Amino acid sequence: MTNCKLSTERGRGRPRKGKEHNGEALLEAALACFAQNGFEKTSLRTIAARAGVDVALLSYRFGSKLGLWTAVVDAMAEETLEQLQAWPHEQRDRTPEEQLRNLCSGMVTLVADRPLFAQLLISEIMTGADEERQALIQERMAQPVHELLLEYAARLRNLTSDEARERLDLALIATMSMIGVLVSTRPFLSRFSPIGENDEAFKAKLASLMHQLLTLN
């Protein structure tokens, strides 16, 4: 994985044509820099250089580095929640077992297709460097996603007792944590394990593990 460093190849503050207002490109550049360098070691100037825009544009659009970081988390949370909320409708003609397997595959794909975001979240959660950023992750991403997953999986497994739901709750936390860690460390794992070499096989194995944990009695 390459480091996100301040580029000196073009004139300072000179944007590429057509990139000045590409919000998606700005968020992608910010995500890469935050994930690879961490929040504290990333500057707006670094992100602006990677995105090919004037740093003043980032300040104008997002207000601050924290504002840009929050926008990255919000964008990923919105995408995840939209897909989660759509799944029950899309899967309504399938059996509960098929829906649960598809849920596992879908969640693995969401995480595996965004390894930098998984890296960002794990870094923030494990280091515990900033309470405000952790609170934002909990409020805008982790808690709403977890609650949706828990309700969906509990309904598919027809769980009604508090004890059964508590076991499922723990299983969800364990599986999503496991998936995030494996996805974000995949480049390292592929050095000594074949699990990281093939995209589809990697996702299939993770989905199978997730399904096994969610169906334990």
Results as ranks from 00 to 15, higher is better:
residue 56 A to S: 11
residue 34 F to N: 01
residue 50 R to Q: 13
residue 53 V to D: 08
residue 73 V to Y: 02
residue 52 G to W: 06
residue 105 S to L: 10
residue 74 D to L: 02
residue 44 L to K: 06
residue 61 R to P: 00
residue 72 V to N: 00
residue 95 T to D: 09
residue 67 G to R: 10
residue 57 L to A: 12
residue 62 F to P: 00
residue 47 I to S: 01
residue 40 E to S: 11
residue 76 M to P: 00
residue 38 G to W: 02
residue 46 T to S: 11
residue 86 A to P: 09
residue 53 V to N: 07
residue 46 T to C: 13
residue 91 Q to T: 14
residue 87 W to K: 07
residue 54 D to G: 11
residue 74 D to K: 02
residue 73 V to N: 03
residue 100 L to Q: 04
residue 106 G to N: 09
residue 41 K to M: 09
residue 97 E to H: 15
residue 46 T to A: 11
residue 66 L to T: 12
residue 98 E to T: 15
residue 39 F to D: 04
residue 94 R to H: 14
residue 74 D to W: 03
residue 69 W to C: 02
residue 81 L to Q: 04
residue 48 A to F: 05
residue 51 A to I: 05
residue 43 S to W: 09
residue 81 L to W: 02
residue 61 R to N: 05
residue 99 Q to C: 15
residue 93 D to N: 14
residue 105 S to P: 04
residue 55 V to F: 08
residue 45 R to K: 14
residue 90 E to S: 13
residue 89 H to V: 15
residue 80 T to W: 15
residue 47 I to G: 00
residue 95 T to H: 08
residue 46 T to R: 12
residue 38 G to T: 09
residue 62 F to R: 00
residue 35 A to T: 06
residue 85 Q to M: 07
residue 71 A to M: 05
residue 85 Q to A: 12
residue 37 N to T: 07
residue 77 A to M: 03
residue 47 I to M: 05
residue 80 T to E: 09
residue 105 S to R: 14
residue 92 R to H: 13
residue 97 E to Q: 14
residue 45 R to M: 10
residue 87 W to H: 06
residue 56 A to D: 08
residue 83 Q to P: 02
residue 40 E to F: 09
residue 67 G to M: 10
residue 39 F to M: 05
residue 36 Q to V: 01
residue 94 R to F: 12
residue 37 N to D: 11
residue 103 L to N: 01
residue 72 V to L: 03
residue 36 Q to P: 00
residue 68 L to Q: 01
